[in-house]
């Protein structure tokens, strides 16, 4: 354990490490921290003729459109709900497939299936929405043509909000499974064989080995993915919702999230202030959540905590 040192002393002792970290620090300063002054836009009235800090300060006025809509709570809950489903189901499935895949013995099969599972990642939501429409459209979609040929009443999926709760989660996972699976697969590759050998000698079967060795070893990776996902829990996946649901107001109660709402509200007017205020709301939410969760993780096991 290193002893406490002053910053200067630390820089001198670990100068090479500092130099190695320098590009990263510079990158985030330029790319992220300096532009962060823009947060102030959230509190001003945008003016083409005046600069940011000379613009009129309007307090929380830009936030009004969020709570005046009367649906902020609903949007927040929807966004939270979907993201939690994405995180939990997505990670569980990614871990399961990664474990199963790592145990496959037939090499070509293993490699081929891995590659194929990555394919959906390349299909943009624009394209996906076209496919989905072709499957579910009422008059001549895949599904209803099938149902009709079996003499079953056709179903109107695009008028059934609850169905989309499931479908959206499904499509999200479908698209991202390959991506998150790889992370776990790489982590499994990194687990030393010695553990398994030892367990085998102790008489543990493959299920036990998986449960008592592999799964615990994946925890740090899971925590990283979790904390990153939590930080942006109010944001993201705009394209998924926007492309699949689009203008279909019938489904909004079940499928509208903060991002889609903000997009629609600001499409017609360019109000930098309002856009910034929405972003700030999302950030604050994620910030509080992450700091809390990280604190809990730190209590449980310091090594797993992010910071």
């Amino acid at each position: 354990m290193a002893t406490k040192r002053t910053l200067l002393k630390e820089i001198i002792t670990n100068r090479i490490l500092f130099i190695m970290l320098l590009p990263t620090i510079a990158f985030f300063l330029i790319n992220s921290y300096v532009p962060m002054v823009g947060v102030y836009y959230a509190f001003t009235k945008f003016d083409f003729k005046r600069s940011l800090f000379n613009s009129e300060f309007v307090g929380l006025q830009n936030f009004e459109f969020l709570w005046k809509s009367g649906i902020l709570t609903k949007l927040t809950l929807n966004t939270l709900g979907y993201n939690l489903a994405f995180i939990i189901i997505g990670n569980v499935l990614a871990i399961v497939t990664a474990i199963l895949l790592s145990e496959l013995r037939i090499k070509w099969f293993k490699k081929l299936t891995q590659s194929i599972m990555f394919l959906p990642y390349f299909i943009s939501f624009v394209i996906l929405s076209v496919i989905v429409y072709n499957v579910f459209s009422y008059e001549n979609g895949f599904l209803n043509t099938l149902l009709k040929s079996l003499s079953i009443e056709p179903v109107d999926v695009y008028n059934t909000p609850w169905a989309w709760v499931i479908l959206i989660v499904l499509f999200y996972i479908w698209k991202n499974l390959g991506y998150s699976m790889i992370i776990y697969l790489a982590a499994i590759t990194g687990i030393s064989d010695e553990y398994y050998e030892a367990a085998k000698i102790d008489g543990a079967n493959i299920f036990q080995r998986t449960w008592y060795i592999t799964v615990p070893m994946l925890k740090p990776t899971f925590v990283v993915l979790l904390l990153f996902a939590l930080g942006s829990i109010m944001k993201g996946q705009f394209d998924l919702f926007y492309q699949l649901i689009g203008n279909n107001g019938v489904l909004y109660n079940a499928t509208d999230i903060l991002d889609t709402y903000v997009y629609r509200s600001l499409k017609v007017t360019f109000d930098i202030g309002m856009a910034s205020s929405a972003g700030l709301y999302q950030s604050l939410f994620g910030f509080v959540l992450v700091v809390t969760v990280n604190y809990i993780i730190r209590k449980v096991n310091e090594d797993y905590a992010l910071f």
Partner: peptide
């Protein structure tokens, strides 16, 4: 009436579009 405008945009999409 910027905030109301945004809210109405939402109402139109959600309740009038159908």
């Amino acid at each position: 009436y910027q905030p109301e405008r945004a809210a109405l945009e939402q109402v139109e999409k959600q309740y009038f579009y159908p």
